[in-house]
């Protein structure tokens, strides 16, 4: 998105500066906000995976919650069973999800529109139940993924009050920034252009020598890798992975976030992530304000989220854009 103006190195520096600023900010804000910041970072990665898949490659997935579960379980399994260090465990989870995504992508490349949506929907419902079947996956209780307190060198670097949440924020934000940088470059490479070409006009792209189905499989694999990375980080934030941590609503939530982001915009995914975290918070406050009955607190988040989704699809099908920057992005498509 920014490469029209920034080279990869410049954008890397920019994101690095942003990262430093965010990490510095985490020293002043309170614990809850720090944790929510970490959640935003996790959602940003998940939404970026949908942006890549839907906005660029033109495929849809309602099953990315299940792919996140693959990543979460891969990470937690390698962490508890083989005592991988947590960073390696997260990468292992990403690998597991990418392999799963590759297998799924081979099938997905042959399916279109509603068929793909429905198959991935069935996957989202079916896959988490697998955890009950194998003793090694811990059943309903799930698997422990508690990485404990930040290491000593980190506490030295971060000061005395460097809490676990700040450590989480540090990890997730670093991953998110690296992901945004890498994916931005990927989408502006020949891969990204080929994906877009295949999405816009498959016949013309095929005639121009682009292997459409190979591109689709690759997009699904990369997207699944991102989703499973966010799933592994999601497990890290929770301290454990359970089948119920990756419900159908999670798959829907990240698609919602991607739509709010305008599906085609990677920078928009940050906005999407903020909205996904902010809505439960806002609606909680609103429900308390309106009397705070149990019905209200349980259903207001869903109501707000779905209304927002409908409004965006109906009135802002290109996503929520802010000012001139947004229009320019749109013109580039």
């Amino acid at each position: 998105m920014r490469s029209r103006r920034f080279s990869p190195r410049q954008s890397a520096l920019l994101l690095f500066a942003l990262g430093i600023a965010l990490l510095a900010a985490s020293r002043v804000v309170d614990e809850l906000r720090t944790y929510q910041g970490a959640q935003v970072a996790v959602y940003v990665i998940a939404i970026a995976s949908i942006v890549l898949l839907t906005g660029y490659s033109g495929q849809i997935s309602l099953g990315h919650g299940a792919i996140m579960a693959l990543g979460g379980y891969g990470a937690a399994l390698s962490f508890t069973l083989w005592n991988f260090p947590f960073a390696l465990a997260i990468l292992f989870g990403t690998l597991v999800g990418s392999v799963g995504g590759f297998i799924l992508g081979v099938a997905a490349a042959r399916l279109s529109g509603p068929y793909l949506a429905g198959s991935t929907l069935a996957l989202a419902v079916g896959l988490p139940t697998l955890a009950d079947q194998f003793h090694i996956l811990g059943g309903e209780q799930g698997l422990n993924f508690d990485i404990g307190d930040p290491p000593h060198w980190m506490q030295k670097l971060g000061g005395d009050n460097f809490t676990q949440y700040k450590w989480f924020f540090w990890i997730t934000t670093s991953f998110a920034l690296v992901v945004i940088w890498a994916i931005t470059n990927l989408l502006h490479s020949s891969y990204g252009r080929n994906w877009k070409a295949g999405r816009n006009n498959a016949v013309a792209a095929g005639l121009a020598g682009i292997n459409i189905s190979q591109g689709k499989i690759l997009a699904f694999t990369v997207s699944s890798g991102l989703a499973s990375l966010s799933g592994a980080l999601f497990g890290l934030l929770l301290g454990l992975v359970t089948p119920t941590a990756f419900p159908l609503s999670l798959s829907f939530a990240i698609v919602t976030g991607a739509v709010l982001a305008g599906v085609g915009s990677l920078t928009g995914s940050i906005l999407g992530g903020v909205v996904l975290v902010a809505i439960p918070e806002l609606s909680g406050a609103l429900a308390t304000h309106l009397g705070g009955s149990q019905k209200m607190t349980a259903n207001l988040p869903g109501l707000l989220m779905s209304s927002l989704l409908i409004v965006v699809v109906l009135f802002m099908p290109h996503g929520v854009r802010i000012g001139k920057f947004g229009r320019q992005q749109q013109a580039n498509k």
């Binding site: 529109g113 509603p114 949506a117 599906v263 209304s307 989704l309 109906l314 290109h318 498509k333």
Partner: peptide, 13 residues
């Protein structure tokens, strides 16, 4: 970008 998936998204909403 979302013309194809808009019906899916809208009905989910």
């Amino acid at each position: 970008p979302i013309a194809e998936i808009a019906p899916v998204i809208a009905t989910l909403g």
